[in-house]
Structures are given as C-alpha cells and as structure tokens.
Amino acid sequence: MANIPLTASYNSFSGADIVAGLDVPVLRGGTLSFEHYVFGELQTISYSLYRPKRPVRAMGFVNPKGFAYGPRTLAGSLIFTTFDRYIVYRALEQYNAAGYRYLADEMPPFHVTITMANEYGQQAAIRIYGVTITDEGQTMSIQDIYTEQTMRYLARDIEPLHPGNMFSGGGAVR
C-alpha cells in the first residue's frame, strides 16, 4: 500500500503581497529591449483561456469518439487606479518625450509580471506574454473615492502561477 502523507503545506497570498510590473518594449540605439516598470496603480488583473472543442462522431455510434481542439484564446482585463495622468504615458515615457501621444490600443505588445511574497517568505509568480490592448475606458463618479482606468486585452501566452521568484530562476523568461 502506498504511503500517503497526512499533512501538507499550502501557501496563499493576499493583495498586499502582490507587486505588478509591465515590461514595455523600448528602442535604444536601434536595438529593441524591454524596460521593466513597477505599477502600483494596477489594482485588478484577470485572465481567461478559451479553447473550443467539438465532438468527433462516427456513423452508428451515439457517443463521440473523441474531440477536436480549436485555437486557444487568452484574454482578460486590467484595472488601474488613476492618479494625475493617463497610465499609458507613464509606460511609454520614451515615446512621449519624442512628442507622440499614444492611446492604450496603440501600445506595442508588452508583458505583465505579477510577483508575490508573503510574510512567511513564500514566493510565487505569474507572467502574461504579448499583451495587446483591445479596448479601454475610465470610470469616475461622485459615488466613488477614486478614478479607474479599465482595459481589456488579448495575449499570446501565459506562464501560470508557480512557486518561486520570476527573476531568480524560479520561472522561465520568454
């Protein structure tokens, strides 16, 4: 009989344990690289994966023989607290200095890195690659104490939540 452990260790993280960063592409001397910006303004991030699956049927059988997999779509939303400037301008400082005024849907694809560390020393990270903004909005109201910048996105890939620090070799960087 297999020896089953009777105890296990589970770690969790709260919103206070999380730091969000965006890796934005910048051009330096004709070379494209990524500049990392920590965004304390990012208050909510969500993602979802969708992949259509269709049954494969054969004549004379009621049940499907298997399933055909369609293309995967990765999408989600980003919600920022707005202070005194448009959030995109902070991420694209280099372009703004040159006089360009981008909107979020014009941003080049960027990466989002969420790192977590709790008071017990446990760490975890998640990374979303190739984020491109599809639409954005802003909410402000006399009923709310703060203003929000909301954005929805599509992305190319995701490195799901895993233990360890993204930048100390705990996770792969693509």
Rank of each mutant, 00 (worst) to 15 (best):
I128D: 10
P25C: 08
Y47K: 04
V88E: 07
L161W: 09
S14F: 01
I142D: 13
G15V: 09
M140C: 03
G171N: 04
T132S: 11
Y129Q: 01
G130C: 01
Y47V: 07
A104S: 11
Q94C: 02
G15M: 02
E148T: 15
A20D: 06
G21Y: 09
P52N: 12
T132P: 01
A125W: 12
T134Q: 14
Q122H: 15
T115K: 13
I133E: 02
I158M: 06
L32N: 10
T115W: 01
S168F: 04
T44L: 12
G164I: 06
S46I: 12
R152P: 02
K53T: 14
Y37I: 15
A97N: 13
M140D: 08
L42T: 01
Y86E: 11
D157L: 02
I145R: 13
V19S: 11
N165W: 08
E119C: 02
A8S: 13
G99F: 09
R57N: 10
S48M: 07
L6Q: 14
G40P: 10
F110G: 05
M140R: 08
V62P: 00
E106Q: 15
T44H: 11
A16F: 03
A8W: 00
L32T: 15
Y37V: 10
P64S: 15
D17M: 02
R156M: 04
P52S: 07
R152K: 12
F34P: 00
R101P: 00
S141P: 03
A20N: 15
S9P: 00
F61A: 11
G170E: 02
Q122D: 14
L74C: 02
P52L: 02
T82W: 04
I79R: 10
T7V: 10
G40V: 01
A117V: 09
A91W: 05
E41K: 05
R28S: 13
V24P: 00
R57M: 09
P160Q: 04
L78E: 06
G76N: 08
V112I: 14
R51G: 14
P64K: 10
G137R: 06
I4R: 07
G170V: 04
I114G: 02
T113M: 02
L154G: 13
F39L: 14
Q149P: 00
Q149A: 09
S77L: 01
S141Q: 12
R101M: 05
F61M: 10
Y100D: 14
Q123P: 04
S141R: 05
I114S: 08
G30S: 04
S9H: 12
V88Y: 08
I142S: 13
V56C: 05
Q149N: 06
V56R: 14
T115L: 08
L92G: 05
G60V: 09
S14N: 09
D84H: 14
Y102K: 05
L49G: 05
Y102W: 15
T139D: 13
F13M: 07
E106R: 11
P5D: 10
I18C: 12
P160M: 04
I145F: 02
Q94H: 12
Y50L: 07
M151F: 13
N11C: 04
V112N: 06
Y120C: 00
Q123T: 15
I126E: 05
A58N: 08
L42W: 03
V62T: 10
P55K: 08
I133A: 02
D135M: 03
G29W: 06
A125H: 15
S48A: 14
F61K: 12
I45M: 15
V38Q: 13
P160T: 03
Y100F: 15
G70C: 07
R156I: 10
P25N: 03
A98Q: 13
I128L: 08
T134M: 10
I79L: 08
